[in-house]
């Protein structure tokens, strides 16, 4: 599926989105039954860093979409995927706390 994303920023954003999703899911599963303070701190740091980087990526994607309007389709696909991480994060927070 990565072949679909021809722009480098989209490929980067998709890889980051998948990485956040997998790491977030793993942390959530761990936090559900290992209630250790250290893990909570790790999860919070991960959440803060990933939210900021994801936010910057989304901004860059919007800019890139405006500059390369011909590739709007793959840019929007990437944007939707990147933004989908936020509701998933909220759902995971709801599960853990």
């Amino acid at each position: 599926m990565m072949a679909y994303f021809t722009c480098s920023i989209n490929r980067f954003a998709m890889k980051m989105t998948i990485l956040y999703f997998l790491t977030g899911s793993l942390l959530m599963l761990l936090l559900l039954f290992v209630k250790v303070d250290f893990l909570f701190v790790v999860a919070l740091i991960f959440l803060s860093i990933s939210s900021v980087i994801n936010g910057i990526t989304v901004f860059c994607l919007i800019m890139s979409m405006l500059l390369n309007f011909a590739d709007i389709e793959q840019h929007t696909m990437t944007l939707v995927a990147a933004l989908l991480n936020y509701p998933i994060a909220f759902l995971y927070i709801h599960f853990v706390f």
Partner: peptide
């Protein structure tokens, strides 16, 4: 599901873009 979401956001823009090009 993904195509459905993206279509609702950009279908008109893609059509417009294709028309201009």
């Amino acid at each position: 599901w993904f195509i459905g979401v993206v279509n609702m956001i950009i279908a008109s823009l893609v059509k417009l873009n294709n028309h201009i090009n």
